[in-house]
């Protein structure tokens, strides 16, 4: 068994799992965080995307042990009880998800992009979402939603600069 301890959505979580356990299995089966989806389990579909230390990764291709001591963000950590994250808000407003199975992965790929770049070009958005397969939407409204989310986040960061109120800073 391998002992792992990591920060998931801001909380320290530990588990003792067989060494072949993937991060996705750890999240879903040990921590009951079922937002990251098990699609293909070989890194093709991107439904299991989570953010590890700022990078969007396929959690089905990462061992739980490799995430030991690192920061993991899953879809469950994106919204607060009161507010959707601006990316989620933008996806909702644009009708950018249909069946939604790819949604958690797409949103986290978008977040990893926007954490680095608040003004991405269409091509940069297409590149960032290219590892997330979607059978329903044709991606068009997703790309529009990421552009809208970028605009919302730019506004938010400007507001925070003008009235510096660290206590309301979003995670």
């Amino acid at each position: 068994m391998t002992d792992v301890t990591m920060t998931i959505n801001g909380q320290t979580r530990s588990a003792s799992v067989p060494p072949e356990t993937t991060l996705l299995q750890l999240l879903r089966e040990n921590f009951n965080l079922t937002g990251a989806k098990l699609g293909c389990d070989v890194g093709d579909c991107g439904a299991c995307t989570v953010i590890v230390d700022g990078q969007a990764v396929n959690s089905c291709l990462m061992l739980a042990g490799q995430a030991d001591g690192r920061q993991v963000l899953t879809i469950e950590g994106l919204a607060s009880r009161e507010h959707l994250h601006p990316i989620q808000k933008a996806f909702e407003n644009s009708g950018a998800l249909q069946c939604g199975f790819c949604g958690p992965g797409v949103l986290l790929s978008a977040k990893a992009l926007l954490d680095d770049n608040l003004d991405p070009s269409t091509q940069e958005i297409r590149d960032a979402l290219s590892g997330n397969l979607c059978r329903c939407t044709g991606y068009t409204k997703m790309i529009e939603a990421v552009q809208e989310a970028a605009r919302l986040l730019r506004e938010e960061s400007r507001t925070q600069l003008t009235h510096a109120r660290p206590e309301v800073a979003t995670p």
């Binding site: 699609g39 293909c40 093709d44 297409r126 979402l129 290219s130 397969l133 979607c134 068009t140 790309i143």
Partner: peptide, 14 residues
Amino acid sequence: PNLTNYIMPTSLDM
């Protein structure tokens, strides 16, 4: 019977 060899459009193909 998998997404490795059954190629469907990604955001880059649209």
